[in-house]
Nucleic acid binder design. Structure first.
Lengths: 269, 269
DNA sequence: CGCGCATTTGAGGACTGTCAACTTCCGTGG
DNA sequence: CCACGGAAGTTGACAGTCCTCAAATGCGCG
């Protein structure tokens, strides 16, 4: 493993606070591996033997049922994934597949669990990481249960814009059919959702999306800090520490989240 | 706090493994409180000062957006909730409301965080708890994205049956409109979903549901161990340790989960 | 007994998925 | 450099699912 890779791993919130020994032990048994695009790293139901650290490339996490598949998260460097299964030494609930050529550090699950026992600071970091992942998923569920597909897409675009601090032009990081699945719709409907957003100044040109009327888009999207990690807080409150990898917002470019309906309201309560 | 309550708290996976000292310190600053039905314990967006331990009654966790509300989880004793926010000392992403008269132990968040720093075994237990919660939500997302409303209801009923190890008769633990929201539909559609399940031997009589043809119900529901925590594993595999509170399967009686479409398949990819 | 609320039922419409045809894009190979 | 083939993305037509509104029914509590 290159020194710079080592530094990148050490820079993860998960390891930043760990004792030097902990880090050394954990990475001692680790190995760096390269995978071509389209490789299945992990199949749901399989035992999980490693904590994965994505150093380069993109990885998709998905689930299947009854011959259907849905994308649950898309990871970009630097991210760890499958931490929850490692902590519990349990079977994977999601499959992982490379979307492009990837460089991945694989740390034995035993090493992680041992390190947690020996280093309370590391155990604490794991807890914080998992708490952040959990909260990311709460946002996702709220997003899906409280918003329709056009609203989800609108918020996704705003999240992209916030993440790339791009002005009025954002680039989609994935194929549209992957994005459609992540947002919980079919490719056809994603296409129609983009059309619908033309009315608020959204134009698509391949992977390049121009937002010519952000105010109108925001009026439609109604981003909410309790769903969308990028959305502005009310007062002068400090940004929360959710951080962390996985389906955490940063990786998904703020894509998924979730929150909703009031006591009297309706819509998919 | 009564001694028997103390024992119930100590019996939680979260505390079972903790040092005696840890438990003493944590519960020293705690106070037991009773709330009438319909009390808002916590509003989303509020700072979280306590870890809540539900000892008696039922609590609903919900999220709101744009004047709509959705139920994210329903908790029954003994459960802790809001642990993720406590670990991160962050604002709540969900609101909590009592559904009936409740008895709740409130442990200061500081005490929890301090205990984690001092007691690695406790920190480890927190990690395991959060990992279980996380996996519960992964199941929920798969359930919602991969199944339609009738399928979700069918699996919910099977989960209830498994939890209560009832034969062909299960009791609903909540009002139908709450259940509808938890399952991601309107009360009207829950009613229609029940009607649809008559074809596979499901009959509703108030809160009492009789399942006269479990085989047919299962054929429709297609329960999956990677979505439904109750579903049978393939071989002689040991049941996983997900356990834990919160939106964990046990509380929701195995209700929620989620996963979906295969590469070629469709339906809400 | 009557009121209020939860639940049910019906009708209609909005949203989303399915199927099929067409266009565009892109990499391969001639 | 250009033609070809396949995949991705679009569009249209249609159907199924789900939500909304309204009204009726049933149940529990005062």
């Amino acid at each position: 493993m290159r020194a710079c890779d080592m530094d990148r791993v050490k820079g993860l919130p998960l390891f930043a606070d760990a004792a030097a020994d902990t880090f050394r032990v954990a990475t001692a048994g680790a190995h760096l591996q390269r995978f071509p695009a389209g490789t299945m790293l992990l199949l749901e139901g399989d035992p999980v033997d490693f904590l994965y650290v994505l150093l380069d490339g993109q990885v998709e996490l998905h689930g299947t049922w009854n011959d259907h598949e849905t994308v649950l998260a898309i990871l970009r460097p630097v991210s760890t994934f499958i931490l929850a299964a490692v902590v519990l030494d349990a079977d994977a609930l999601m499959s992982a597949r490379t979307l492009e050529r990837c460089e991945i550090l694989m740390i034995p699950g035993d090493a992680i669990r041992t390190a947690m026992r020996l280093d309370p600071r590391f155990a604490m970091a794991v807890s914080r990481d998992l708490a952040g992942c959990y909260r990311g998923l709460v946002r996702t569920v709220k997003n899906h249960k409280l918003r329709n597909s056009v609203e989800r897409l609108a918020n996704y675009l705003l999240a992209l814009r916030a993440a790339d601090n791009s002005g009025g032009v954002v680039r989609l990081h994935h194929e549209k059919r992957i994005l459609a699945s992540l947002l919980g719709m079919t490719p056809e409907n994603l296409s129609r959702a983009f059309s619908a957003l033309q009315a608020v100044g959204v134009n698509v040109q391949g992977a390049v999306v121009t937002l010519s009327n952000v105010a109108a888009l925001e009026a439609l999207a109604k981003p909410d800090p309790l769903i969308d990690n990028h959305a502005p807080r009310g007062g002068d409150i400090v940004a929360e520490a959710d951080a962390e990898v996985w389906s955490s917002e940063r990786n998904r470019a703020g894509g998924e989240a979730g929150a909703r309906t009031a006591s009297a309201g309706r819509r998919n309560d």
